[in-house]
Design a protein around this nucleic acid. Sequence first.
RNA 1: GCGGCUAUGGUGAAGUGGUUAUCACGCUAGUUUGUGGCACUGGAGUCAUGGGUUCAAUUCCCGUUAGCCGCCCCA
Length: 433
Amino acid sequence: MSNEKRLFQKPRGTRDILPAQQSAWRFFELSAENVLFGLGFSKIDTPIFEDRQIFERSAGAGTDIVEKELFSIESRRDDEENSYVLRPEGTAGVVRAYIENGMMSWPQPVRLFYFGPMFRYERPQAGRFREHRQLGLEIIGDASAESDFLSIFAAIEILKKLSFNNITLAINSIGCPKCRPKFIDGLKKYYSAKLENLCEDCRRRYESNPLRLLDCKNSQCQSAKNETPKFVNFLDDECKEHFADLKIMLDDFGIKYTIDNSLVRGFDYYTKTVFEISAGTDAKRVNTFVGGGRYDGLVETLGGAKTPAVGFGMGADRVVAEIISSGVKIPKPLGVEIYLICFDNSAKEMAMKVYRQIDDAEINIFYLPSDDSLSNQLKSAAKIGAEFAIIIGENEVKGNQIVLRDLEKSTQEIIKFDDIIPLISKRLLRSSQ
RNA sequence: GCGGCUAUGGUGAAGUGGUUAUCACGCUAGUUUGUGGCACUGGAGUCAUGGGUUCAAUUCCCGUUAGCCGCCCCA
C-alpha cells in the first residue's frame, strides 16, 4: 500500500446520472408524480434495505431469485441476528410498511406510490443494471377489478404525459390458487406428449416452473406452443368475472389491449390479472416499461391479514432512456436568467442597486463583483448559460441606465433605470412559456 | 453462475515489438482593454489494471476489473 494512483470505477452494473441527463429524470419524476397525486395516490418511501426474510418469503426460499440475485449486507457483530438485503423490488417493502404501520385501519383501499433504486445481483447487459430505479404503485385493500383498471390507467396516463406514442398493453389472468392448479395440470398434460421436441431448458421448466414453458423464446419450442391451453379457459367463475369486469372498463375508456396467454408470473401470491406495457406494436413488443398485476396472497404471506392488492412497477431507466432518445421536449429548470456585469469601479454602487432590485423581483440573477474586463465577464456569462447580461459601466452610471444584452440572440437594448423590472420581466424566457 | 467480443487524453477515433503516440471535439491561458460564441497563438491531459515473454511491451500471452452480446433467471 503506497501512494500509487488508483483509478476507482463505479461498481459493476451501476451508473452515474450526469447533469446532461438530469432534466430528463426530473421530467419523468415530476410528470409521474403529477399524474399519481391527481389520481389520489400518496407517496411512500421505504428503506433501501430490508430484512432478508421479506424477500425470501415472498419469492420462496431456494429459488434462483433468492439464491443468486439478492445483494446481501454483511452483518455486524451488534446485529448478528438480523440479515439484510438491498431491496430487489418495491412491492414487498410497501406491503411490509402497510402491515407494520397499521394501514389496514386507514380508509381502504390504500393507494401508494414509490420511486427509488432497486438492486439485483445479475449480469449486466444493455438496459439491465444491478442498480436501477423503479417507479411503482400499489393499491392495497380492494378486491374489485376497478383497482386493476386504475393501476393500468395510471401507468398509461404517466406514459402519455411523457409523450409516448405507440405503446401496447398486454393483459392476462393467471387465476387464483383454486383454479391455477387445474391450468398447470392441463399445461403439463399438453406438453407431456411433446417433451422430446422441447429444448433442454423447457424440459427442466416442465418440472420446476411449468408456467414458464409459455414464454420460451427458443425456436425449437415455438411449434409446440401453437395449441397450448389458454389460461382464460381454466378460470373459475370468480376469476372469470373479475377478468371480464376489467375488460369492460378498458373498453369503456377506449384503451386497447391484447390478451397474451403467455404472460405469466412465477410466484404463488400472484392472482388474477397480470399486465405489461411495452413500446412498439402488438406483434413486436420491443421494450417493456411496466409490469404489474394482482397479488391477493402477498399481504398474508408477509404476516398481515388476508388482503387483496394490485400494483405495477415501471422501469424508470428504460423510460428515461426512451425520453432522451425520442427527442421529446423536456422542460428545463430555470438557470441563471440575468448575469450582472460591472466592469468599472465607479459603477459598483449602481450595480448593487440593480442587483437588489432584480433579486427582490425573484428573478435569478448572478452577480459576483469582478475586476475582469467586460469581454471576459461576457465569456463567463455565456459559460454559465445565462439568458441575459446586464452591463453596467461608466456610461450607464452617467445616463442612469443599463444595457440589457440577450446572450442567445446577440442583441441588446438600453433601459432606463426605472424601467428595469417591467422590461426584464417581459423579456425573460419564462414569461414566453 | 456459464460462454463470446472489447478496453488508446474528458468524448469520439487513428496507430506502433524500438527516441518526445496521432487527430478532431472539449477543457484551459492569452491576443481585442465598452461586448461572449468566430479567428489566431500557447498549455494541460492518454495506451484500464497486475503479472509474464522479450535486450525492449501501449502493441504478444495470462489473471483482474469494467463494458457490450448470448444463456440461466427476471419479483
